[in-house]
Amino acid sequence: MNGSIVVMGVAGCGKSSLGAAIAQAEGLPLVEGDHFHSPASREKMSRGTPLTDEDREGWLATLGEQLRAQPQGIVLTCSALKRRYRDTLRAAAPGLRFAFLEITRDDALARVAGRSSHFFSASLVDSQFATLESPVGEPGVLRLDARLPLEQLQQQASGWLHGQEASA
């Protein structure tokens, strides 16, 4: 595969799990977007305070640097909730593709509430859905049902990356 892919969606949709599965299947490095949040942003989220566009600006610039630094391709996990966030990433890596893990609010809330070792507060799930601008219809976007088994999601994403039709 030549190029990069962002595994995106709201908290609890399975970005990290699918990102790792795609990275392994495609032989690409995995870059966890959460690892690049500032300490101040992590603190805000752990308190249940949503990030602002300004909070995300430096984070997105750093993720863009990660994309530019690895032109052979990477798998990046990033919520990429707004079109302008995705466009920032696209500017860093022309031809960038996105795998959008679509999930319901209730499913996302249940998953986030069940995580014990993550800084993200379950109280932020509603703000994620309020911020989300669906990427469906944008170029280079694959919509995936986050409720499907991980292996099936990875196969759909890998098939799509290699030009095969995905049945999402």
Score class of each variant (00 low, 15 high):
residue 91 A to P: 02
residue 91 A to Q: 14
residue 92 A to D: 08
residue 92 A to L: 08
residue 94 P to W: 11
residue 94 P to E: 12
residue 94 P to G: 13
residue 94 P to A: 13
residue 96 L to R: 06
residue 98 F to S: 07
residue 98 F to G: 06
residue 100 F to A: 10
residue 102 E to V: 02
residue 103 I to K: 07
residue 104 T to I: 11
residue 106 D to I: 03
residue 107 D to G: 04
residue 108 A to D: 03
residue 109 L to K: 13
residue 110 A to C: 06
residue 111 R to M: 04
residue 111 R to P: 00
residue 111 R to W: 03
residue 111 R to Y: 01
residue 112 V to T: 05
residue 112 V to S: 06
residue 112 V to I: 11
residue 112 V to H: 01
residue 112 V to N: 03
residue 112 V to A: 02
residue 112 V to C: 02
residue 113 A to T: 15
residue 113 A to R: 15
residue 113 A to L: 10
residue 115 R to P: 03
residue 115 R to C: 00
residue 116 S to L: 10
residue 116 S to F: 01
residue 116 S to I: 06
residue 117 S to H: 14
residue 117 S to T: 14
residue 118 H to D: 13
residue 118 H to V: 07
residue 120 F to I: 15
residue 120 F to E: 06
residue 121 S to R: 09
residue 121 S to N: 15
residue 122 A to H: 03
residue 123 S to K: 13
residue 124 L to P: 08
residue 124 L to K: 06
residue 124 L to V: 05
residue 124 L to G: 09
residue 124 L to D: 09
residue 124 L to W: 05
residue 125 V to R: 00
residue 125 V to A: 00
residue 126 D to T: 09
residue 126 D to W: 00
residue 126 D to N: 10
residue 127 S to E: 00
residue 128 Q to N: 05
residue 129 F to E: 02
residue 130 A to E: 14
residue 130 A to V: 02
residue 130 A to R: 13
residue 131 T to I: 06
residue 131 T to L: 09
residue 133 E to N: 01
residue 133 E to C: 00
residue 134 S to N: 08
residue 134 S to V: 09
residue 135 P to Y: 02
residue 136 V to G: 07
residue 138 E to V: 02
residue 139 P to C: 11
residue 141 V to K: 05
residue 141 V to P: 02
residue 142 L to V: 10
residue 142 L to H: 07
residue 143 R to A: 15
residue 144 L to E: 10
residue 145 D to T: 07
residue 145 D to H: 07
residue 146 A to L: 04
residue 146 A to Y: 01
residue 147 R to L: 14
residue 147 R to K: 14
residue 147 R to Y: 07
residue 148 L to K: 13
residue 148 L to R: 15
residue 150 L to E: 05
residue 150 L to R: 04
residue 151 E to L: 13
residue 152 Q to G: 04
residue 154 Q to A: 15
residue 155 Q to I: 05
residue 157 A to V: 14
residue 158 S to K: 13
residue 158 S to M: 13
residue 159 G to S: 02
residue 160 W to M: 11
residue 161 L to R: 12
residue 161 L to G: 08
residue 161 L to K: 11
residue 162 H to S: 14
residue 162 H to R: 15
residue 163 G to W: 02
residue 163 G to Y: 04
residue 163 G to S: 10
residue 163 G to E: 08
residue 164 Q to S: 14
residue 164 Q to V: 13
